[in-house]
């Protein structure tokens, strides 16, 4: 089968992706530490600041995470056609059908799959949900970070309730991100093994490969 090389992910998109990944790794590790600081050998007067440091890196990564989310929002509106918000949502009959094609493909029912250059429709929906969860993490995080600011207080109280409720939600969402990371990693590896389309390398260099036979690929 012949494949042709297609440019899919812009530089900004790939930067967003890796900033998002790295910040989530740091946020999850430091978040776990903040929740339940593991015993450590520091004794009084030994000038170690593990909690202060962990919180510092958490907040630093929190800002990177926030910036990444804003970049993704920008790309949703002004990115290339694979990156825009409607690209992978079930807004046309073709995109709705793509849900079933993808399910059949992932369920080993068929080896045929939609030749979507960007995300398939299921992925598109899950990513959108993930960004909503990310926005909740950001609002909750800043509410925890600036508890005395009237502005964050108003938002935080509206969406989460008290500081304690916000922390609880912030912590539960941590588990969503771990869950997402597991499934996401598995599926990209699975796709990369199933079809030689360069799914994994595309997030490094921007290019995917698609079968040449039926002319232009959908999506």
């Amino acid at each position: 089968m012949n494949y042709e090389k297609k440019y899919v992910w812009s530089v900004l998109f790939r930067l967003f992706h890796w900033a998002f990944v790295l910040s989530i790794v740091v946020l999850a590790v430091t978040g776990f530490y903040i929740n339940d600081p593991w015993p450590n050998p520091w004794l009084a007067g030994s000038r170690g600041f593990p909690m202060a440091d962990m919180r510092y890196y958490h907040f630093l990564a929190g800002y990177v995470f926030t910036a990444a989310l804003l970049v993704r929002l920008f790309l949703y509106l002004f990115g290339n056609r694979h990156e825009r918000i409607l690209h992978a949502l079930p807004v046309t009959p073709g995109k709705v059908k793509n849900i079933f094609t993808t399910m059949a493909y992932y369920g080993y029912v068929t080896d045929r799959h939609g030749e979507d250059l960007g995300h398939n429709t299921i992925a598109g929906i899950v990513y959108l949900f993930t960004y909503v969860a990310a926005a909740a993490q950001v609002v909750g995080g800043f509410y925890l970070l600036y508890p005395e600011s009237a502005g964050w207080q108003a938002w935080g109280l509206k969406f989460f309730g008290t500081q304690q409720q916000a922390r609880h939600m912030h912590h539960l969402l941590l588990w969503y991100f771990l869950f997402f990371a597991l499934v996401h990693l598995y599926l990209v590896v699975w796709n990369d093994v199933k079809a030689p389309e360069g799914m994994i390398s595309s997030i490094f260099n921007g290019y995917k490969f698609k079968p040449k036979h039926n002319g232009s690929a959908e999506g």
């Binding site: 929740n35 339940d36 992932y106 080993y108 609880h168 912590h171 539960l172 941590l174 588990w175 771990l178 869950f179 597991l182 499934v183 598995y186 699975w190």
Partner: peptide, 22 residues
């Protein structure tokens, strides 16, 4: 929250494993 999180992640991990084995 953590024990629930671990269980859900464990179930997801098992599902991923089964999917891969299939």
């Amino acid at each position: 929250a953590d024990s629930a999180g671990k269980k859900i992640l464990g179930i997801a991990g098992a599902a991923v494993g089964i999917h891969a084995v299939v």
